[in-house]
């Protein structure tokens, strides 16, 4: 099996890396396009509608048309906005969302996956950088709704980073590794099977914290449209707006991939090729996010914070304790 990670950094290998990154970017863009399509279809079905159906067969090109429209739109920078910050904020928000994908093992052959031995840490660390982009965007817009949205977002994402990390800790304790490739490999041989079984509490905490991290319903306070109009990106238009949307959906994909890798056995599974298993499990995870979105009302900001600190973190800590105790006993 070819592994470019162990090769010396020559010009040719560097070119290979760049090509690999571009391919991943392209794949991710297509995945994002169809994640949006999938979301609109699923929520449409749940509301007895048919969802997008006009552009292309079955509306398959709807997202492409939307992106194209956004690119053609005028790029408005509000007069009283902090121009520089306003312009770079979407980029700050987007870049980490793409970078975290580097450690996700999509298939059994880790062609484009960095075998980083601190993969989980890398993911969590990088994903928090996006918060800077969101707060900056909210602040630079010079709009009260944006500001409130940005600050809420910062408070929420920082709070939920902790239970997210703690819930993953149980998995790390079981597998003894921070490397996502190793974690998947461990799940194939573990006596309890996929980690969703021994780590069910951790999984529940992970899903809740993940939804909150993604700013999705029922935790979509930063962009609570019935209160804050559109939250931190109220003033954004055109492709800068598209960047925010893009990073949001890349994170949907990324966190679904992370959840699949950590709890659902990653690409591991019988009969079907490994990438298909990965795609199926990720789709299931994403479907659950959309399903929740179609059902739940929005939680209130103070309840959201107290839920993180008073419920999720104690439960996650208890899970760690339980995992430690059980792995000592069993």
């Amino acid at each position: 099996m070819f592994s470019w990670q162990t090769q010396p950094l020559t010009g040719l290998n560097f070119l290979g890396m760049v090509i690999g990154a571009v391919i991943v970017l392209m794949v991710v863009l297509v995945v994002v396009m169809y994640t949006i399509y999938f979301e609109r279809k699923v929520i449409g079905w749940m509301q007895n509608r048919i969802g997008p159906n006009r552009v292309g067969p079955f509306g398959l090109l709807q997202s492409a048309a939307d992106v194209f429209k956004l690119l053609l739109k005028e790029d408005i920078v509000p007069a009283n906005a902090d121009r520089l910050m306003f312009m770079i904020a979407p980029i700050i928000a987007f870049v980490p969302s793409f970078m975290v994908l580097a450690v996700i093992p999509y298939t059994a052959a880790h062609v484009f996956t960095a075998g980083l031995n601190v993969g989980v840490l890398y993911y969590i660390a990088l994903s928090s950088i996006s918060i800077v982009g969101i707060v900056l965007g909210g602040w630079a817009s010079n709009n009260k709704y944006s500001l409130v949205g940005g600050l809420r977002s910062a408070a929420q994402m920082i709070s939920y980073e902790i239970p997210l990390g703690l819930s993953i800790l149980g998995v790390i304790m079981l597998s003894g590794s921070l490397n996502l490739n190793t974690i998947v490999a461990h799940q194939a041989t573990d006596r309890f099977g996929w980690y969703i079984i021994p780590q069910i509490i951790g999984f529940v905490v992970f899903v809740i914290a993940a939804i909150a991290e993604l700013n999705r319903t029922p935790f979509d306070l930063p962009e609570a449209e019935s209160e804050l109009v559109a939250g931190y990106f109220t003033e954004y238009t055109g492709f800068r707006f598209a960047f925010y949307m893009l990073s949001e959906y890349v994170y949907v994909f990324a966190i679904a991939s992370l959840g699949t890798t950590l709890f659902l056995g990653g690409w591991e599974g019988p009969f079907l090729p490994s990438w298909l298993w990965f795609a199926l499990k990720t789709s299931l995870f994403i479907f659950f996010l959309f399903w929740v979105r179609a059902t739940m009302p929005r939680i209130r900001i103070d309840q959201l914070m107290s839920f993180a600190w008073k419920v999720l973190i104690p439960v996650a800590l208890f899970n760690i304790l339980l995992t430690g105790a059980l792995s000592l006993i069993l």
């Binding site: 929520i43 749940m46 509301q47 007895n48 509608r49 319903t217 029922p218 979509d220 609570a224 019935s226 979105r293 179609a294 059902t295 739940m296 009302p297 929005r298």
Partner: peptide
């Protein structure tokens, strides 16, 4: 819908 749930509105 004000509280953030969109499905009941369509139902």
């Amino acid at each position: 819908l004000d509280l953030g749930a969109m499905s009941p509105f369509l139902y």
